[in-house]
Design a protein around this nucleic acid. Structure first.
Lengths: 200, 200
DNA sequence: GGACAAATAGACTATACAGTCTAACAAGAC
DNA sequence: GTCTTGTTAGACTGTATAGTCTATTTGTCC
């Protein structure tokens, strides 16, 4: 019975993942001892891999950020595409992890402005840009009213998440998904950005 | 030269207001010593008025909550009323105080769930309810499409603040107000909720 | 002026935490 | 078997903090 060998990479990975979970769930204030315990590792071992708590926090956040993007797949007509996006967006943003990441990052944004900026750019900003690109194309093809696509993307994202995210952040509800809501929002959006009717 | 007498009420008030500012600006983690110093008072004096930091925090938050409501004044036609509301809403939510309160409260919501709930109810919830009442009337009068007024209110509030609030929370911009944006949002909203045309 | 109440500065306790250091220990390399 | 390298538990340091206690001062009322 050969035990599997554990490389330094494995330990590092384990530490990083435990840190992601811990910072997400407990915020920056989680103690080094808890971080080490959650990775099943001694405190000194943690310091063998990361020179300080701040560095570990930064690495963990950058790791988490990788998974923040919401994809957008052309999926038939505009409504179907936006429904797909809306569902994915709500699932990500309103998941307990999404809410928790948001909370931790907001709270520490004044102390780690570079991290906050990076999160914003790689997450919401990029998601919005992709959505705007899609909307711009749809506008050009006459499937949507010609308008500022960045503005439109911002509106759709806001409508999809804002109030329910607030509920989640305030710990007021666990069932934030409300499957019917996505369609309600998308249809509302489509009314606002319906193509102008040619009235010759 | 008679110095103005300072009643216990005054000291209490001073403490409370200093605590509001301090918790807003620095979060719950601000130290008791700093709280006392900001009120120009000895630490022991603070403890003469408030038995613990948690109690002071709770009182400060409840005090802050009083000023979170956004008023809504009928102001001519629907568009003008919503423009007035939108401007006031954005001014409040996107002000540096609004952002800071939001950040502090969100960060501590897991530890003070009752406070979070109270904030949510007295602030966003009530504002949304009033807006929904107004919208319901406008719908009944045929000035807006008949639809779920709660949903409509949620959409308008979301569109007015969501993305810019995110920018503010991430410390990415100081000039969040963008006066033209309110009208852009309101017009977008009005397109989505325009009354159905009678097409006989 | 004297008595009383409250404010003050600062010493003190107890706790928690980041980060360092040491000594014992485990496992592969040779 | 021994050497080397990395892990471990736990002692240790230094700092920050919430909250208590005490002795002193201040100001008001009589």
């Amino acid at each position: 019975m050969s035990t599997v060998v554990e490389t330094p990479q494995d330990i590092r990975q384990r530490l990083l993942e435990a840190a992601c979970d811990a910072f997400r769930e407990e915020g920056y204030k989680v103690s080094i001892d808890r971080l080490a315990a959650r990775a099943h590792v001694a405190r000194q071992t943690l310091y063998n891999y990361f020179p300080s708590k701040d560095v570990l926090f930064a690495e963990a956040v950058r790791h988490i950020i990788q998974s923040v993007l919401v994809t957008l797949d052309r999926d038939g007509d505009v409504r179907a595409t936006l429904l797909g996006f809306g569902k994915a967006y709500r699932a990500k943003v309103l998941s307990s992890e999404g809410i928790a990441i948001f909370r931790t990052l907001m709270a520490e944004a004044p102390r780690f402005p570079a991290l906050a900026k990076q999160f914003f750019r790689q997450g919401p900003q990029t998601t919005r840009k992709r959505l705007a690109e899609y909307l711009a194309r749809a506008m050009k093809e006459g499937q949507l009213k010609r308008d500022d696509p960045d503005f439109a993307a911002e509106m759709l994202a806001a409508m999809l998440a804002d109030f329910d995210r607030l509920r989640g952040l305030m710990n007021l509800q666990t069932d934030l998904l409300k499957p019917k809501k996505t369609a309600q929002v998308v249809d509302c959006f489509l009314r606002a950005f319906a193509p102008e009717k040619d009235t010759p």
